[in-house]
């Protein structure tokens, strides 16, 4: 009963949800602000793309699909802009990024806390 396009749309929506969750885990797990931006980027890019693409496949060729495409376009243009604005504001405020591989101890401390 379910055509191949329906199945493809399920796969897109479900794998998009997985990436959204991975982004959420990263947001909690990564050690400092600058690395957390990368985790938020996962949710903003592949997670939302897959979910919106899945909804578009479900919708077919209609006005709703055009609105979803517009939504995709807005997310595509605004998410890097706000990430960049945040990173730049933090950098100019003097928030220093952690660098190198010596993050392990600090990360374990964070895990316990």
């Amino acid at each position: 009963m379910a055509g191949p396009i329906e199945v493809l749309s399920w796969v897109c929506i479900l794998s998009g949800s997985v990436f959204v969750i991975i982004g959420g885990i990263g947001l909690l797990r990564l050690p400092d602000f600058y690395t957390r931006i990368h985790a938020a980027g996962i949710t903003d890019t592949l997670g939302s793309w897959l979910i919106l693409a899945g909804l578009m496949l479900h919708e077919g060729f209609t006005l709703g699909a055009a609105k979803l495409a517009m939504l995709l376009f807005f997310l595509l243009t605004t998410s890097p802009l706000s990430s960049h604005a945040l990173a730049k504001a933090a950098f100019l405020r003097g928030l220093d990024p952690l660098q190198g591989r010596d993050l392990v101890d600090r990360h374990e401390v964070d895990d316990i806390a």
Binding site: R36, A40, T43, L52, L75, S79, S82
Partner: peptide
């Protein structure tokens, strides 16, 4: 950053 990410998820 968290609130921005929260907003993206709200849209979805």
């Amino acid at each position: 950053l968290a609130v921005n990410s929260f907003g993206t998820k709200t849209v979805l």
